[in-house]
Amino acid sequence: MNIAINASNLSKHFGNIVAVDNINFSVHRGECFGLLGPNGAGKSSTIRMITCSSPLTSGQLIVHGLNVNNEQRSIKSHIGIVPQNDNLDPDLPVKQNLEVYARYYGLNKQLIRRRVEEQLEIFELSDRANSPIHSLSGGMRRRLLIARALLHNPSILILDEPTVGLDPQARHIVWQQLRQLTKNGVTQVLTTHYMDEAEQLCDRIIVINHGKILAKAKPQELIQQYVGNNVLEIQNFSNGIELLKRSLDFTIEYEIFGDKTNIYASDDNLLTISAKIKISNKSNLRKANLEDVFLRLTGRRLVE
């Protein structure tokens, strides 16, 4: 069984709104799979269908070899979920949050005690075992949420925006722990709109927008395919672009984001252009990243 999750012709409608539009993808065992897209793209709806909390409108979804339509209890016992919103139990301190949660999986007392100690240790929360939840920092809460999702040793971990709202240091700690999980063979599915996060963690990603899959590949492949090696970023250049195009003997692709213009071309051509740009325009030749892919694919229109 090399496929952890398989979605075929998966759709989710809310009344007339199509949140997920007939998508197909599969997640391999042991990989970290990223779902990227702007707000309202259909990421969370897809996640909610995988976690059995939202029924499918149509299509088929198999998780851990089981159909989400009729084996929900079984599926939920094999997956761990790190939600986007902090839903730790505010009425219980750290350790008891984990103990009570582990009990929902029907684990016996001894095993619960052992797993809770282990998770507190791994996520560096042992010294906060008796603290009330409201006294924890954002990073600690996030770690506790991940620890909680792993209590029953799930084979698939689902993370919905795992580092949203965290400071850079806390993000790096979370990333490090997620990479460790990948080493331990835990399949991960994560949604994010931090492109550096996707580049850091994901083996493969899909980019979705308006409920449809726009691209599906490894992060580096996507960058190569949609952007190339490098990008030339120029400030306040939107009026100069026509002039520049006429002066070149090759064609270029570009996009204008407010006061910033991004030019995409081969490395040699970018150097040629770079030489033509006035210093006052503040140009910057930099490595292409996943964010460029994302912006090219999903458009720069603000999505709410």
């Binding site: 909390s53 079984s74 939920k76 979920i81 139990d89 929902y104």
Partner: peptide, 13 residues
């Protein structure tokens, strides 16, 4: 508090 949501992510219905 999202307590229900959290419990629903476990095998509980």
């Amino acid at each position: 508090h999202g307590t229900y949501e959290a419990i629903l992510n476990t095998p509980a219905s």
